[in-house]
Design a protein around this nucleic acid. Structure first.
Lengths: 148, 148
DNA sequence: GCTTCACGCAACTCCTGTTGTTGCGTGACC
DNA sequence: GGTCACGCAACAACAGGAGTTGCGTGAAGC
């Protein structure tokens, strides 16, 4: 199944924006992500609505961070993207009145809820500033990246 | 994103099969799931390969449980289905050499790995027999179902 | 005031993986 | 031998993210 990479991409962009003086145009961001400006605007729209970035029209326009990275967590961005579905597996709902289906789905939902709680809790504890710091350490060769 | 409901469906089927005397044909299972027999065979194939069910051809043929529900966990079925992707969100890999992308993806992967470990651990602890028991309790009205 | 830049938005197409469907082959009972 | 039911291959349907094009609008610069 094709994965939703919006969260990963937007985090990447936001951290880059901190180092970027002035505005970053959708074109520039798209170039960086290997995509196109419309996709960037579409995805950034959610972040703007939540007040994490601002967009300026016209000459010299583009995107600006509206908050410092210390104030933004991964969870914030996840929510700003509309809290997309986290899991690729879902519950069958063919026979809602079947007690077996109910028991199966309850059990699956319980496990998934627990995993989701863990995931969102972790997302809520990591700020973009920490990621930026981590990236700097990586750049200095003080960390090894075991994940691709 | 369209969810993968194979796990939920197969669990449902397996528990029903315990109560079903003799074989259950793909047609009957498909009818129960509101789908068609080919989908059933396709999905059950993985369970057969792992020895959880058997299939018999010809007159009176169909599907049979090859193990008792006590010996099968949710995790077993998940694996038998080919351990499909659990998460709907993924990591962007446009600039593998970008340290920021690396830091972002490392952080996301760490959180997802933790959530996945929790999820699989929970799956591994629940047997189908327990689900069947839970369903019986629901049928007796001794449990309330807060999940749809 | 006109041009240019850059976002805003709508309406597509493309891609990918599950699901749904049809057709044909094969083994097992009756 | 005929019927039943699985086995398998080759499709189409569907959904959602991603990609693309076109047109509109506001702001800076000339």
């Amino acid at each position: 199944m094709r994965s939703d990479t919006r969260l990963s991409r937007m985090l990447h962009v936001l951290i880059h924006m901190q180092h970027h003086e002035g505005t970053a145009t959708s074109d520039a961001i798209a170039m960086m992500l290997g995509t196109n400006p419309v996709v960037v605007r579409r995805t950034m729209a959610g972040l703007r609505d939540q007040g994490y970035v601002r967009s300026e029209k016209g000459h010299g326009g583009g995107w600006l961070l509206a908050r410092s990275l210390e104030e933004i967590t991964l969870l914030d961005i996840h929510k700003a993207l509309g809290t997309p579905q986290l899991f690729a597996i879902g519950l069958a709902g063919d026979n809602p009145s079947c007690t077996i289906e109910q028991a199966v789905n309850t059990s699956l939902a319980e496990a998934m809820d627990a995993a989701e709680a863990i995931l969102l809790a972790k997302f809520g504890k990591v700020t973009l500033a920490e990621l930026a710091e981590g990236a700097a350490k990586v750049a200095n060769g003080r960390l090894t990246m075991e994940h691709l």
